[in-house]
Amino acid sequence: MVFIIPIVIINYKMGIGLNKRLIYALFRMTIQLILVGLFLQYIFILNNPWINSAYIFFMIGAAGISTVKTCGLTMKNQLIPIALGFGVPNFIMILFINQFIIGLDNVFNAQYYIPLMGMLLGNSLSGNIIGINTFYSGLKQNEREYHYRLALSANQWESTLPWYKEAITACMNPMIASVETIGLVSLPGMMTGQILSGSMPMTTIAYQIVIMAGILITRYFGIHFSIILTRRKAFDAYDRLKI
């Protein structure tokens, strides 16, 4: 924290208007993480499958709200489709990993269930935001071309296909790039954390491979489902984009 002081001074002297937000962000992060830490500690001690799952659903809901807000969708119509769209693949994936890959007796064990689901969801979230944004903003920006396709009698699915494909690509590209370079450019956070708390590197690698494959798969299906589910309410009866 001592190193923040020179930053604040430099910003102040040079008139770089970042200080207020910077200090607020650091303060907020500290409080947020302490609260989450306390909360998680409590959840881990209880380790009740229902409470753990309730926490997971809370994460899915929060991620859904974040996507809807960032992409400029309407909360009322699109929150549930979005939350289902990427909640379901992630939920299936976490159960699969816990049951068949790690081989837990209790797949809802907080120690695995919560942090791994957090990683899966976090990645699906960023992928979903990129993909959904690409799809709907692509349609909006190319409205004339989209309408022309409709006029050529493409149905709604056929006429939106170019932007659908673009959305999947945009969603997966950064993921594929990071899978390619992982370990070369930076050690993933999960590995770093495990190593710092005493695990051997080869153990952490095994988990990392599993989680990366899991992330890639859920991100892929998450964006498909999210677009398919949100588009049901994104067009009017004349197939015009409502968003």
Binding site: N142, R144, E145, H147, Y148, R149, A151, P162
Partner: peptide
């Protein structure tokens, strides 16, 4: 429908 802009698909 043929328009001035002729927005044929890419």
């Amino acid at each position: 429908y043929v328009s001035q802009d002729a927005d044929i698909p890419k």
